[in-house]
């Protein structure tokens, strides 16, 4: 369980988002993904998220465990359902849908 953020005052969510971003070093796609994600999180999930950025180059065994194929990939661990967001996260609309922050 993840501890509740004391500052959280959201309406529907009691717990914070758990996100993992898998990147490949400092490749252009990865850098873009990181900056895009940070921006989205700051805008829509302010202080209500835990983000872990993992460099798959550094931990190659994680690739098999996490079923990684395309990179960069953002894995939404919580809340369910688990979603995998491939790409540099430049399509904000789709990212929001993927994170469940916006309906179609």
């Amino acid at each position: 369980m993840v501890e509740q953020d004391p500052d959280y005052n959201g309406l529907d969510e009691q717990q914070s988002y758990i996100l993992r971003l898998f990147v490949t070093g400092a490749s252009p796609n990865s850098s873009r993904a990181i900056s895009n994600l940070k921006q989205i999180c700051e805008t829509y999930l302010k202080d209500n998220y835990e983000l872990e950025i993992i460099d798959v180059y550094q931990q190659p065994m994680i690739a098999e465990r996490e079923q990684i194929i395309a990179l960069p990939m953002l894995l939404k661990v919580f809340p369910s359902p688990v979603r995998r967001l491939m790409g540099d996260l430049s399509d904000t609309e789709k990212v929001l849908i993927g994170l469940g922050l916006k309906k179609y």
Partner: peptide
């Protein structure tokens, strides 16, 4: 969900 540019580097690493 595809959200932008990506490659299959993950497959390569794996």
């Amino acid at each position: 969900e595809e959200t932008g540019e990506y490659d299959l580097e993950g497959l390569f690493i794996r």
